[in-house]
Amino acid sequence: MKKLTGNRVFLLVSALVLFAFSTQLSKIPQGAKEYPLVLLIVSFITVVLLFIKPQQPEETIGKENALRIFIFAILTAISIFLLTKIGYILATLSFVYAGLWYLKLKKNLVFYLFPIILTLSMYFLFTRVLSVILPMGTWFSLTL
């Protein structure tokens, strides 16, 4: 009985992605199809080989660490989602505060001032100096 290690799950997901790609192949006209087809086949073969190979032992990072990373990743995802909803300034400001709070930074002057300085300095650098308009919110927008 082969164990479903983390690596094997990773490979299964890759195989799913490859499968999704292969469903698109029929639409692609001749001349644009051959090259990706070859890549798809080789990728599939290597996935299978890696799957049946004896697995290396995997290092574990402990539940507590995994949870911390997971929550931080979710925080990041939320902030990216919010970028187009409440705009760059508010999304970034709240992400930086939330992140620092969650990672238990000591609550001194740095904790309160740093997020504002980071957010606003990036904002002014981009919008004023580099004339790149950072995401604005659809729900609510703050522009300076």
Partner: peptide, 17 residues
């Protein structure tokens, strides 16, 4: 001291708004 800093921050953001 922390609370004072916080109040200042809120004030600043409010002023911008």
């Amino acid at each position: 001291k922390n609370r004072m800093v916080l109040a200042l921050v809120i004030l600043l953001v409010g002023a911008f708004l």
